[in-house]
Design a protein around this nucleic acid. Structure first.
Lengths: 149, 149
DNA sequence: TTGTAATAGTTGTTTTTGTAACTAACAAGC
DNA sequence: GCTTGTTAGTTACAAAAACAACTATTACAA
């Protein structure tokens, strides 16, 4: 039953990880060098740029990031004046986060880089293939095999 | 030119990372709970199980892991008596790493888990789709866009 | 030779992450 | 009103990763 041909290039989590790391590398360097950001910070910035005002929990939910990671990313981003915090009037536990003008500018810059970057990465895929890959990866992202033993 | 519909689910590195994390989670827990291993240790074990005796550098090359990570993983694995080190007679900088019987047993156990795990992950893909995905991910893993700006 | 550079691997230090414990604010039942 | 439980977010401490500097050995050329 055990297939001797099953090596690491057949193990999807490994493959995905390698592909994710390799494909992020160059982009990572750009937001790091240009804005001194970490991945968590870039993600928060991107979420605020894409969806407007959000709370930390909302970002955590969407991005699958732990609240401590977000807390620290938001701290950095506010120190750099990229993000503002505003307490909710009704529920004072909540903080509404939003981009400042320089934050918005950084977002727009990186958004356009990301778009070109993605295009370069997928340049030899057809539109149909791209869409198929996207759907598949989204599906795999939805916590698969939580109860595997 | 800027496509407003370009969101995070269209950014391949992000998608890959989410899919990689989600799809590794359950497997990670298995080797962690069963053998107290970290990802780096599991990878070293797997390489030795698959390819037999290797040096640390060879593993680093194949797995794209930094030598310090490997050095520490090997240290843990030798402490747990899963791996033995043998100096090369001709070039005494080299150490040939190999699995001990218990290391081999752990490898075989995890190898079979990985195989079933992968099958479960890809259960609703056809053989052709699986192969296409695999090829694509292997390609993306080969340091793409090193010179992107 | 002997001096310089390269390679294999380790160790030390700093960043970053993960985990758990914490404060503050709200909600709901009594 | 009070207690108990929940949620939002922060902070403190421990684990892991990244980065740089280091030792030991080999290669190779003047």
């Amino acid at each position: 039953m055990t297939d001797e041909n099953f090596d690491l290039t057949h193990f999807l989590p490994y493959l995905l990880n390698q592909a994710a790391e390799a494909s992020s590398l160059a982009f990572q360097q750009i937001y790091k060098e240009r804005y001194g950001m970490l991945r968590a910070e870039w993600r928060v910035l991107f979420h605020l740029g894409l969806y407007g005002q959000l709370t930390a929990s909302e970002i955590g939910l969407r991005a699958n990031m732990h609240k401590t990671k977000i807390s620290r990313a938001v701290q950095k981003l506010t120190e750099r004046r990229f993000v503002t915090r505003a307490r909710d009037a009704g529920d004072r536990r909540l903080e509404h986060l939003a981009l400042t003008p320089p934050g918005q500018a950084a977002y727009e810059d990186l958004h356009s880089v990301a778009q070109r970057y993605d295009a370069a990465l997928t340049e030899d895929l057809s539109a149909a293939e791209r869409e198929a890959l996207r759907k598949l990866l989204v599906k795999l992202s939805k916590t698969p095999l939580a109860g595997f033993t």
